[in-house]
Computed example of a mutant assay.
Amino acid sequence: MILIRELVQQAIATGYLTVEAEEQLRQLLAKKYDREDLTAFMRLQQAAMAGNVRQESRELLTAQC
């Protein structure tokens, strides 16, 4: 089973969060997770807000408008 921190590490390394990875994160966050995963998720949020990680879902929404 993949962990939140693994998805975060991949997104930060590539600078891109796919729709599929975002959906996996939603599913994983709905279940129990440990402090390390929560910290990783917060790092991902910060990276996205800083523009270091682009979100495919947001790019798709922008393209539709």
Rank of each mutant, 00 (worst) to 15 (best):
M1L: 13
M1K: 08
M1E: 12
M1P: 09
M1H: 08
M1N: 14
I2V: 11
I2L: 09
L3V: 07
L3Y: 06
I4D: 04
I4S: 03
R5Y: 03
R5E: 01
R5N: 02
R5F: 01
E6M: 11
L7C: 01
V8S: 02
V8G: 00
V8N: 00
V8Q: 00
Q9H: 13
Q10S: 11
A11W: 04
I12R: 12
I12S: 04
I12V: 14
A13H: 12
A13L: 09
A13I: 01
T14Y: 08
G15M: 07
G15Q: 13
G15W: 10
Y16Q: 03
L17P: 00
L17W: 02
L17S: 00
L17C: 06
T18E: 07
V19F: 07
V19L: 15
V19M: 09
V19H: 10
E20C: 02
E20H: 12
E20W: 11
E20S: 05
A21F: 05
A21C: 04
A21L: 01
E22C: 03
E23P: 04
E23V: 10
E23T: 11
Q24I: 00
Q24D: 01
Q24L: 01
L25Q: 05
Q27G: 02
L28E: 04
L28V: 06
L29G: 07
A30M: 09
A30L: 03
K31L: 07
K32F: 10
K32Y: 06
K32S: 10
K32D: 08
Y33I: 00
Y33V: 00
D34Y: 07
D34I: 05
D34R: 07
D34V: 05
D37Y: 03
D37E: 11
D37I: 01
D37L: 00
L38V: 07
L38D: 12
L38K: 11
T39E: 06
T39N: 05
T39G: 05
F41G: 04
F41P: 03
M42L: 15
M42R: 13
M42V: 13
R43Q: 06
R43I: 08
L44G: 03
L44Q: 06
Q45H: 06
Q46A: 10
Q46E: 10
A48Q: 07
A48H: 00
M49D: 15
M49R: 15
A50Y: 04
N52W: 10
N52K: 15
V53L: 09
V53E: 05
R54A: 09
R54D: 04
E56H: 08
S57T: 11
S57E: 12
E59L: 14
E59K: 09
E59R: 11
L61W: 15
L61T: 13
T62L: 09
A63M: 13
A63V: 13
Q64P: 02
C65S: 14
C65P: 05
